[in-house]
């Protein structure tokens, strides 16, 4: 257990070394919120409707702020780390350590997330409450949301790791990595709730892991699900995590057999 704690500490220290890059999001994220706020204010006023696709304007603003909180916490560039280790042969050193590769990446990442919760996510949440009239709908929902966000971080981590594994075959993966963030937030309902998408798309996304990254946790926060349904949704998140973990294990075993540790 001690070695995992040390890895987490390392992650937190990395975050501290780059504290300016973290703090800057306190300035940049509110800009996105302002743009979103004005865009939807205009649309709601112009349409004359109170509820569009199941969301009032107030819920919509809350939706976006919570989406930003998840974006800050769930952000991961693990695939670049894997790519680096493969390209430069650093993987050899990592394989010598007594912790499995996946675990060492995971616990370092958790250290980063802990810092990000302190200096990014919480301030943004408070800014949302003070300046954009975001509100906490109920304490129970907030707790369920926090749990769902935790699993959402796990999902993003595993998906990023899977993308990273592709660098064993494709070598450089800067292209895929570039669009990962955009795709995950688009398919996960980061821009607009998934109810705005065509019916067929919604049905497909029921069977994909992406909606559990943002759409589902935020809806839990907004109280769109009953407590029972919210718990079921969290259960589905766990099932997806187990599934992705198994896939990652299988692919990892195949990839490492291919690896020869010379760098490419």
């Amino acid at each position: 257990m001690k070695k995992y704690r040390e890895l987490t500490k390392i992650g937190a220290k990395i975050a501290l070394a780059y504290k300016f890059d973290f703090i800057v999001s306190i300035f940049t994220v509110p800009i996105s919120i302002i743009v979103f706020y004005f865009l939807w204010k205009t649309i709601y006023a112009y349409s004359g409707l109170d509820v569009i696709r199941g969301y009032t304007f107030e819920e919509m603003v809350n939706y976006f702020i919570m989406s930003m909180v998840i974006a800050l916490l769930g952000w991961s560039n693990i695939e670049r780390v894997v790519e680096y280790d493969v390209l430069y042969g650093e993987m050899v050193l990592r394989l010598l350590s007594p912790v499995t590769y996946l675990a060492s990446l995971f616990y370092t990442e958790m250290g980063l997330k802990a810092m990000s919760l302190l200096v990014e996510a919480t301030p943004i949440f408070l800014i949302g409450i003070v300046f954009f009239k975001a509100k906490v709908f109920s304490i129970l929902n907030l707790i369920l949301y926090a749990i769902a966000v935790l699993f959402s971080i796990g999902l993003v981590f595993l998906i990023s790791f899977l993308i990273g594994l592709s660098s064993f075959w494709l070598k450089r993966i800067s292209g895929i990595s570039r669009s990962k963030k955009l795709f995950l937030s688009f398919l996960g309902g980061g821009f607009v709730p998934l109810t705005f998408f065509p019916k067929i798309f919604q049905q497909i996304s029921e069977w994909l892991p992406f909606q559990y990254i943002r759409y589902v946790p935020i809806n839990i926060y907004l109280g769109k699900y009953s407590t029972f349904l919210a718990l079921e949704m969290i259960g589905r998140q766990i099932i997806w995590i187990i599934l992705l973990y198994i896939i990652a294990k299988i692919l990892w075993n195949r990839a490492i057999r291919k690896f020869c540790g010379v760098g490419v």
Partner: peptide
């Protein structure tokens, strides 16, 4: 892959526009 993905990346905002205009009256 990068060239291909960048094209798809830039198509996302028109897709967003399409979603916006099919579900709401849009921007005045």
């Amino acid at each position: 892959i990068r060239c291909f993905i960048l094209v798809i990346n830039s198509i996302i905002s028109p897709i967003f526009a399409l979603i916006l205009y099919t579900t709401t009256p849009g921007i005045p």
